[in-house]
Each structure stands twice: as C-alpha cells, then as structure tokens.
C-alpha cells in the first residue's frame, strides 16, 4: 500500500511538471515539431546522399535561394497571427520587381528605386488593410483584390522580362562574404535581419503583443482598450512592405524583373508559415517558426532535385505536411483548451 503510494508520488510530480510545461508553452509545440521534422529531413537526406547534402555550400544555398520567400513569410506571419490572410504577396513581389527593373533600365538611380519599391508594396498593403478594417471586407477577398491589382500593374509596367544591370542591385546577390566553405550574400543577410526584427517586434513590443491579442479575441482586445484598428491595418502594411522587399531580393537574385514572377508564391508562403507552427485561426505563431517552415520547404525542394525527381513532388509532399500540421495543431488546441 505505502509502496504503491511512494511510487505514485514522483510520477505525479513528473506529470505535474509536464502539465506546467504544456500550460505555459503549448503554442510552441507545433514550431518544435517543425524543427524536429527539419532535422529529420536534413539528417535523412545526408545519409541518403552519402554525406553530400549537409555541406556548407548546400546549406548556404538553401538560405540564399529562398531569401525572398523568408521575407514574405515574416510579413505573412504578422497577418496570419491576427487571423487574417494576405493573398497579394506573390503579385506584390512580381509588381515591385518589374517596377524596379523598369525604373533602373530607365536610368533612375538605385537609391531612388529601392525606396520606391518598398513604398509601392506598403501602399498595396495599406489598401488591403483599410479595406479589411474600415470597409469590413474579409481578408481573403480584400487581399485577392490586392493580388489582381498587383499582377495587373506588373503587366502595365512591362509584358516582357527586363534585365537589370545596376551595380548596386547586382551587388546584393553577387557579393559573397565567406567563412571557410560557408558563404552568404547581402540578400541572405537582409532576410535574416528581417526575421530577427520580426521576431523581436512580435515578442517585445506592445504592437507585437496586440497582434497576438487581436488573433486571440478581437472583441476582447477592443474592450481591453488596445489599438485594434491601427494594428490590423499595420499588419497588412508590414506584409506589403515585405512584398516590396522580396521584389528587390528576387530581382537581385535573378538579375531581371519579370511580370510573371511570384504567381502562386502566396500559397507557398502560407504553407511555410503554417508548417512553421502558426495557427491559421490566429493568435498563435512565431516568426522564427516561419523561418523553420521556409527551411523545411527549401529542403524538400532541394532533396527532390538531388534525387532528380519531378518538382511536382515538392508540392505533393508539402501538401501532405500541411495536412499533418493542421491536424497536429488542432490536437494541441483541443488539449490545452479546457474552457467551454
């Protein structure tokens, strides 16, 4: 009898410890799961390709090839945490890219062109935010309008690809800072800095916390006296701004502007954000998680090209992962919510 009880006590303590952890950090679990999957993918691929996968060159390429995706994912994280969605980011990237390329080829200096690209992206974001907040349009519809607007404007600027020869923009991609076999370009640094800023803003500013509060319960946030309207508009502006920045990175990366760039990219971005542990229903998610999501996406793409298989497999696998993650998130939400 006593033996049973003494045996029981420490187990209960362990359960209590797990309980405390879950009660405190439930929302981190999907992101942790994403990190685990990423590690499994990297290590598994390395074994499969006899150590040729986890090389400094390959990992560096993972980041650099997807710098634009990472920047978009940061903006999208802000939007999705408020329980919104931004479908416009792919077209905004395409539009600002071709706009920049066209201005540069017309002889406008990069110092003017780059801010113009960013402002153009932010303005489309502002438009969507105002539609959502003040005209009560659903984010899906408002940003769909933004998607068409951005793509249409891109075709207005040019129907064809425009080469970029501006040294400043090309410098962003061609410069390589090396450390042994590791290397990084200014575009990669920009992406990482954007991730860092995004993560800090979300965690350590009242604006960032209001983003979470709005996603948790917009009416509560309102009654708590938080600046809900301003915050909701701001997240779309941030997403648009990230779209503009991604346009710059993609232009530098490809050395050209092309009006069809970024078609369907918004869906890749949403997928990476969700895989990274952000709840589509809002209120939970991390910018760092979205970065992990982008790496998962990039790793799958790279593995498939290593295998020489069809790239359509990327979408099949990403689709499967997405389903898995949505189910995992639902389970976690159901587990922590004891109310109602």
């Amino acid at each position: 009898m006593t033996a049973v009880e003494t045996e029981k006590a420490p187990r209960n303590a362990v359960f209590a410890g797990i309980d405390t952890f879950v009660n405190r950090h439930a929302s981190v679990l999907p992101t942790v799961a994403a990190a685990v999957i990423l590690s499994v993918l990297l290590v598994g691929a390395n074994i499969r390709f006899d150590g040729r996968f986890l090389t400094p060159g390959n990992i560096s390429a993972l980041l650099l090839n997807n710098a634009f995706l990472m920047v978009l994912a940061v903006g999208m994280t802000f939007v999705i945490v408020t329980a919104g969605i931004d479908l416009s980011v792919g077209s905004v990237m395409g539009f600002t890219g071709i706009l920049g390329a066209s201005m540069l080829s017309g002889g406008v200096p990069a110092i003017v062109v780059i801010p113009t690209m960013l402002v153009a992206g932010a303005l489309i974001g502002l438009l969507i935010g105002v539609l959502v907040q003040y005209f009560n349009v659903q984010p899906f519809i408002a940003s769909l309008a933004g998607l068409f607007l951005g793509r249409g404007l891109a075709y207005v600027v040019s129907l064809n690809s425009i080469r970029v020869e501006d040294p400043v923009v090309l410098w962003l991609q061609t410069t390589r800072f090396r450390l042994g076999d590791w290397y990084i370009t200014p575009t990669g640094i920009i992406a990482l800095v954007v991730v860092a800023i995004g993560a800090l803003v979300m965690q350590y500013t009242r604006f960032g916390r209001t983003v979470y509060a709005v996603g948790g319960s917009e009416s509560s946030a309102e009654l708590m006296g938080l600046k809900v309207a301003r915050t909701k508009v701001m997240v779309y502006v941030i997403s648009g701004l990230c779209g503009g920045l991604a346009g710059l990175l993609l232009t530098a990366f490809s050395g050209a502007g092309y009006p069809r760039y970024g078609i369907g990219t918004e869906l890749d971005v949403i997928a990476t954000v969700v895989i990274g542990g952000t709840l589509l229903a809002g209120g939970r998610g991390y910018v760092l998680g979205s970065m992990i999501g982008v790496f998962v996406f990039a790793t799958i793409t790279t593995i498939i090209s290593f295998m020489g298989a069809e790239q359509s497999w990327t979408h099949i696998i990403v689709g499967g992962l997405l389903l898995l993650f949505i189910v995992v998130q639902r389970a976690i939400v159901a587990r922590t919510s004891r109310t109602g």
Partner: peptide, 24 residues
C-alpha cells in the same frame, strides 16, 4: 473578455506591460 491564447500574466498586463530599454 480576455485573450485565451495569451499567458495569464500578459492578460493582466496587456497594454500596460513594463518596458525596459529593449522593449517589454
């Protein structure tokens, strides 16, 4: 009218968080 997704402490303090030199 609180936010179910945030911590207890944050719900108490939302909008009145203590701020240091590097944000909250």
């Amino acid at each position: 009218n609180l936010c179910p997704n945030l911590s207890v402490g944050e719900n108490v303090m939302l909008g009145h968080e203590k701020r240091g030199r590097f944000g909250i």
